[in-house]
Design a protein around this nucleic acid. Sequence first.
DNA 1: TTTATCACCGTTATAATGTTACATTTTTTA
DNA 2: TAAAAAATGTAACATTATAACGGTGATAAA
Lengths: 162, 162
Amino acid sequence: MPPEKDNPRAWDKSHYHLACVEDAVAKAHQICSEKGVRLTPTRLRILELIWRSHKPIGAYALLDEIKLEHKSAAPPTVYRALDFLIEHGLVHRIQSLNAFVGCNDPGHVYSGIILICNDCGDVLEMDDAKISETIALYTNNLGFQLSSQSIEANGTCPGCRG
Amino acid sequence: MPPEKDNPRAWDKSHYHLACVEDAVAKAHQICSEKGVRLTPTRLRILELIWRSHKPIGAYALLDEIKLEHKSAAPPTVYRALDFLIEHGLVHRIQSLNAFVGCNDPGHVYSGIILICNDCGDVLEMDDAKISETIALYTNNLGFQLSSQSIEANGTCPGCRG
DNA sequence: TTTATCACCGTTATAATGTTACATTTTTTA
DNA sequence: TAAAAAATGTAACATTATAACGGTGATAAA
């Protein structure tokens, strides 16, 4: 992770579907209820911690935080919750950082493109059907049956370009 | 990594620029010479090992192999060589697998899209300017200065669809 | 020719990330 | 309520990656 620079207006997130932890929690309850799966206290807590961190957060950072209130927590505690949250589209894993962010539009993802600022470390999720359709088209022409994709872009965010 | 299935004709790679280890080594020598950087014996050996593995290979698997001939090798031996090879575009890192593959078209990359077969574990590199241009366009409209990107797609390759 | 520098490598240790396996508890289902 | 399934606790371990420091050999500067 780059030098910690705090840049609260790194990008314009005004179009985001979820503006705060509370929104994310409400949406998560709704989605889990619709799917008939259980948003247990640990899962909920991990989701909240991810949303309260306004940057991608790693599994062991989550573990440190959750240990403060839940002394017996261990790596599987965190990884199981993350698996659940990712499986149900509530959280994205950022492969290039081994870190996690809340999904901005759960239950409605075409293709999540993750933009990562190399200066401040903040992330923007960009959903675009066109790009994922293009990739699906190209891969289908090769006879490849696409099941998932991950697009991560590195660069400098508007806030850090100054 | 999925169950080991050996599927030598998983995809049509007839369009690949580099067909074998020897091609890859020759091209690497050429590129390093043009850039004035040193393709030392260890770097060359790691590149060969990556190309001889016809699947993505992890750093510690490379370490095991190189230890057979070079008893004193340790993790930094491998990671330093990998850093070099990646920096000069000779090797790609596959983020979702923590593994490495030879770049099929070094010195001429628009956007390497990595297709990963979930059944046989083999990988195809697809270079396409259009997709990377589309992403560049979209991110630019957000004021994001793009420096690099990684696109990985999971699914089933033609060979494994049967 | 000495001395400084630099890139590369050897070596040891350790950090960071992620998983297995099995026991226990809680919740749901029959 | 009893059986089954889902979730969690717990300890140990596996995998991936980096830090730190010293040595070596080539090249450049004094």
